[in-house]
Write a protein that binds this DNA or RNA. Structure first.
Lengths: 224, 224
DNA sequence: TAGATTGTTAATCGATTAACAATC
DNA sequence: TAGATTGTTAATCGATTAACAATC
């Protein structure tokens, strides 16, 4: 059975395991956000969480949250809420991101080192398996558990380590060249921390980090 | 005239300057994204841009973009596209973020220094006017054009510099305490780069940066 | 002129919300 | 039991899209 991703069934079967083959963009985005909050709640030792609490942290309406979740099974307990640990594993299953995924990081400057040293990717099953920098002075330097590599190693690392994501923590001027290199070796997801507008083939997904956009947005509602 | 923000007129007057008083959440978010792309396009010397090009970079449907913009005036030229520079200033006017806004940054580690050295906020009119760190060894150190300050200076800096946003580039364990401090001195927008789930009063907006969430989302569509 | 792209309409689809019975 | 919170319905609203005339 192949469903048109743009036209998922409007009433997905509520029976567990009989979910539509592909989530809508909105549902996938929201489930990812729930997962982030749940992961942190679990770290803080929280055992259950209500749809209202999830709503407070994600700014998604609580009815919407219950609706999103109930499409895949009856995960909650009335009067109690959702078990944090079990909900985490349920959502990971739904998103099919329960496994480990490998990242190649570009740029061993402040930002690159901040990313390499953060739990933010590790908590969600992403592992930085290589760090690259074009500065010869940085090649060989230790960053976290990794040693900074030369770009010549890119193809072999991507193939041997099964890298699925490239993260660009480099100056804007260097970003397009590295994006081209990533495309050339078959990486399909690029996470761009520079300001560059990257041109890539249609099968490659680019996500550009945009803290200033989020700020502008927050500021608008503060000012009005 | 006061409009209910949850019920903006469905057909806003197309006449320039007679826009609804408050944009819907969706429109404000999309306009902010257009602005990011336009700002970078302007930097790259691009003079005009079509709704299709904006769509390629923002992943927003091109009809939606034309619709969003035409609600505020006829900014485009048929057969040509939109003038980048004039569209930037129009959107800034609409978002009422044409001025300068001051930021206080917390944390002078790798992430804090990466933020302080980046154009990403400066390009959108945000200026880092102070950097704080609780580590006495870092106080007094130069970061970019600023000198790292002690937290004792927080209240006076916020008042003298009219700080509207606090950016937390600190370890997760320190984030809630600093959020409390920011709330206490009246800052209403907090940008959180830690993984902490921050509890703040309802009038304060928290935005938590979530690169891993975006990655999970991109990965889902790659895997399916 | 011919090609390109905006501005706008109309139709459809998905998101949002209030409300409340079910039930822990 | 009483209080809390889920799961679900039904109604409404906003987003999305295709299509195309207008016009640069």
């Amino acid at each position: 059975m192949t469903l048109d991703p743009l036209n998922p069934p409007t009433v997905p079967s509520p029976a567990e395991g009989i979910a539509p083959e592909r989530l809508s963009l909105g549902v996938a985005a929201r489930l990812s956000r729930y997962l982030q909050v749940l992961t942190q709640a679990k770290k803080m030792g929280k055992e259950t969480i209500s749809s209202q609490e999830l709503s407070d942290y994600t700014h998604v309406n609580s009815t919407q949250i219950r609706r999103d979740l109930s499409g895949f099974g009856k995960f909650g307990k009335r009067g109690v809420g959702y078990n944090v640990e079990s909900l985490v594993s349920q959502i990971r299953k739904i998103l099919r991101t329960a496994g480990q995924h490998n990242i190649a990081l570009f740029g061993a400057g402040h930002l690159g080192r901040a990313i390499a040293g953060s739990d933010i990717f590790a908590d969600h099953g992403f592992r930085v398996v290589a760090i690259f920098d074009t500065d010869p002075a940085k090649v060989g330097m230790a960053v976290g558990t990794q040693t900074v590599r030369h770009l010549d190693d890119l193809r072999s690392v991507v193939e041997e380590e099964d890298v699925v994501v490239g993260v660009l923590a480099v100056p804007t001027a260097a970003a397009q060249g590295l994006a081209d290199d990533l495309v050339a070796v078959g990486v399909k997801i690029i996470f761009n921390y520079s300001e560059a507008l990257l041109d890539v083939p249609p099968e490659v997904t680019v996500h550009t980090s945009s803290p200033a956009v989020d700020l502008l947005y927050a500021l608008y509602f503060y000012l009005t």
